[in-house]
Simulated assay, not measured.
Amino acid sequence: MSFPFECISNFMFFETELEQSDIILIPEASHPQLMERVATLYHSGIAQFILPSGGTTLHVETTEWEFLKNVGVALGVLFRIIT
């Protein structure tokens, strides 16, 4: 087993067919691979909005939200701040 929780992840995670969506939510994360996958979906037209989330963590210098946003910008994702 390469990851400690691999044995239970088979029961927790499943894939469904992708459909058009209004928004893609990225839950708290400090892994660039999540934004890389979301950027691919964004560029393919699956959704026109991306909502990264996350606060401070020991794994990134800023917040997880800003970390994910910066990765997205580097991948050509356009972000708009909506208040």
Rank of each mutant, 00 (worst) to 15 (best):
A29H: 13
M12F: 14
F13Y: 13
C7F: 13
M35C: 04
W65E: 09
V77Y: 01
F3G: 03
G72K: 04
M35L: 02
L75Y: 01
G76Y: 03
G45S: 09
C7K: 15
F49R: 15
L41I: 02
D22V: 04
S30R: 09
I24D: 01
S44D: 12
L78K: 13
T56D: 08
I46Y: 10
F14Y: 11
T40W: 06
M1F: 10
S30H: 15
S53T: 15
C7Q: 08
K69D: 00
N70K: 03
A29P: 01
F13E: 10
N70A: 00
I8M: 13
L25I: 14
E36F: 03
T16H: 12
M12T: 11
G54V: 04
C7L: 11
Q48C: 14
F79V: 04
S44P: 02
F3K: 13
M1T: 09
V60T: 12
E28F: 03
T56E: 14
F13K: 11
L34K: 07
L68V: 00
R37H: 06
R80T: 11
L51P: 09
Q33E: 14
I81V: 14
F79R: 01
L25Q: 07
T63P: 01
Q48E: 15
P27C: 11
A47V: 11
L75K: 07
E66P: 03
I82T: 07
I8L: 13
V71N: 00
I82K: 08
T40M: 12
F3V: 06
P27W: 04
K69H: 02
I26N: 02
